[in-house]
């Protein structure tokens, strides 16, 4: 019988396969399919760019309001206006106290709940035409200038990972979890 001939080899193959996959599973976990490549935290440092409200992810470095003013004039003012209020792109400064009015103005100062978000966003997305080109010191300086323009920090503040994660934004408690459905 041809079937009989195949019994042993198939059984052997299954055995070999299961040993191989057990070996891989031990490496990557039992839900694994033997696919995917293990990585270490140092491998992924350049990808791991997010910053959390508690300051996790903020790199070493520091920057001042004065340095920020220079950088802003050079790299940002053309799109956001000389003082951050003029546009043409998103208005970055002002609007505090406007959220309940007929003309709410949502800016970093009036609306953003966390200062860490500003570091995160500039690091990943600005300047618009050269994203991910800013160095940590530049980003701290730009964040410092923008927060100072919004009257959230003093002119002599030196921003670093520690001081940035301590900042309380004016609209910190302005958000409520989605209560919908809310109509009827």
């Amino acid at each position: 019988m041809p079937n009989g001939l195949w019994v042993v080899p198939v059984g052997l193959m299954i055995l070999v396969l299961s040993i191989v996959s057990a070996g891989l599973s031990a490496e990557i976990g039992d839900g694994g399919f033997g696919l995917g490549h293990p990585v270490s935290e140092s491998d992924i440092a350049t990808w791991n760019i997010d910053v959390s409200p508690d300051g996790q992810g903020l790199p070493p470095g520091q920057g001042t309001v004065t340095q920020g003013a220079q950088l802003y004039a050079m790299k940002c003012a053309s799109c956001h206006g000389p003082t951050g209020k003029e546009g043409p792109n998103d208005v970055l400064v002002g609007g505090q106290g406007s959220l309940r009015t007929a003309k709410p103005l949502k800016t970093i100062g009036s609306y953003w709940p966390y200062a860490t978000t500003l570091y995160d966003y500039l690091r990943r997305a600005m300047p618009f035409t050269a994203p991910q080109s800013l160095k940590p010191g530049d980003i701290y300086a730009l964040v410092a200038w923008l927060l100072n323009q919004n009257q959230i920090i003093a002119e002599d503040t030196i921003l670093d990972a520690h001081s940035l994660s301590k900042i309380e934004m004016p609209n910190r408690n302005g958000f409520i979890p989605d209560p919908r459905p809310d109509i009827h």
Partner: peptide
């Protein structure tokens, strides 16, 4: 993680100045 797209944007401002988030 409170990215810009779930704080500055994509939140729903209400008449009382509060906003729905997520």
């Amino acid at each position: 993680f409170m990215t810009r797209w779930e704080t500055a944007k994509y939140t729903d401002l209400l008449p009382d100045g509060k906003a729905y988030q997520f």
